[in-house]
Amino acid sequence: MSEALRTFLTLDLAPLLAVTFAAGTLALLGAFLVLERRAMIGDAVAHSVLPGLVIAFLVTGTRAPSAMLLGALGAAVVASGAIGTIGRFGRLDPTVAIGIVFTTLFALGVLLVETSGARNVDLDLDCVLSGQLELLFWTPPATAVDLLRPAVLATLPRETLLLGALFAAVPALLALVWRPLEAAVFDPTYARTRGTAPRLLRAGLFILQAAAIVASFEALGSILVIALLTCPAAAARLDARTLLGYVTRSCVYGLFAGVTGYLLATRTAPAVLGSSIDASGTVAVCAGTLLAVRALVVRRS
């Protein structure tokens, strides 16, 4: 195995795969958020994950993935419940309700991180914003043939494996309930008359979305999660005609932004600027640029 390949496998493979898997999953699920005009809810949920993580850490004293996942999911449910309550009883505009909930929960998270012991165990505010992709590395096997052995691949970092599992499971789950889901998204009344349960389906979709946000949050940070939930889907939404075409396109755009952004930040930037730049930020910029280019093209034609 050549030295360059070995370096790539050690330093870049795990984060590159993590970004790619997360980008694909988030773009796929974000497509439904954008379609249902709930993009800002995704934004709010992504912000509210922070206090959930810190509280789960303070209660359990560990950073075990199950505790983190539960805490963050709890926070996501609290956030969407609070948005609903404020809208229903306070009769305030949804944008106001969202603005109140996400700033409050984010402020709570920031306060807890800064004042509790959580700060010492690498839950600091920098990694909240842009994740800790740099910390994902891997000890590759001695020979290239070993790369294909499942036992060897299973030694990849936990975050990468988790995001990979999600990227495999989410499309499969969506395919399984595709027709009822299509009906539930476009015409809930019709869906109910056909005997499917649109509310149950949408609740399931919300849980998937929250799980994907939570799983991606630790590795990628909050900005990238929000950018990947909205930008690829918005770019795909510009000229999509069918739900399948829209969702597929969003997923492809997400994958493209993930791979391009990561390589730009870690390969091109050192060559041009002399040092690498923040990978999460670069992927977000790529997703945004994609949206900008598509918007200009679609408008002209």
């Binding site: 950018a227 909205t230 999460s280 930020g281 977000a284 910029v285 945004g288």
Partner: peptide
């Protein structure tokens, strides 16, 4: 949501 997250990414 799209513009604010992408431009914040640029900021980072």
């Amino acid at each position: 949501a799209a513009v604010s997250s992408a431009s914040f990414g640029l900021g980072i």
